[in-house]
Amino acid sequence: MNSLSLAVRDSHTMLRRNLLHAWRYPSATLNLLLTPIMMLLLFVYIFGDVMSAGIAGGGADRSDYIAYIVPGILLMTVGSTVIGAAVYVSMDMTEGLIARFRTMAVYRGSVVVGHVVGSVLQSVASVVLVGAVGVAIGFRSTDATALEWLAAFGLIALFALALTWIAVGMGMASPNPEAASNMAMPLILLPLISSAFIPAGTMPGWFRPIAEYQPFTPAIETLRGLLLGTEIGHNGWLALAWCVGLIALGYRWSTAQFNRDPM
């Protein structure tokens, strides 16, 4: 077997392990979905009347607000799911099993690849689940073409890959799973200061640049454009740049830590 097929085979084994865990302990994954689903229901049904008055220059009703908020909630779901990856990586790195893997003649990066691919798959599955809740309460895409749907999925997967690599880096940098969970908190808090719930344009002027240029807002605006036909503008490129940048950063950070001698 050449080294590439060896790498693929070992990574596949590690991915199966990762998915087996998710399969055995669905509550761990589902817990992570509670926050975005609660946010969705809270903002639509409790704050909905006030919130809808603030978008589209007023005069919008609840169904307009559902359409507005769901793309943001979907990307928040990604942020929430990858917190699980940070915790899981930290758990793996602080237990004895990783030492066993390191002393076996397996492709070295396979553990990390297993985590990364597993986390992206879980993120996409989670987004589908939360999306189903969105559809159940009345979210409908307006005239998105098959190509736009494809692009939307691609964007979600790419965004999930970007946040996963950052989460993996956080998991490696943490001394224990609790610390990993804390360190990964911004991944679920950032959507609160993005255009997920209210348009960035309605925020105070000094804060607007932060909201507009943080990773979530361009991705949310792009997803909104793909599903609802709103203006994407430069957000498409910004989202792509953020994803590529975060992947590169997370990858470098994670591999540097992974290759360090364990104590």
Binding site: R17, L20, H21, R24, Y25, E95, G96, L97, A99, R100
Partner: peptide, 8 residues
Amino acid sequence: FSAVDGLI
């Protein structure tokens, strides 16, 4: 330290 996967 035991190098087993406790979850499976």
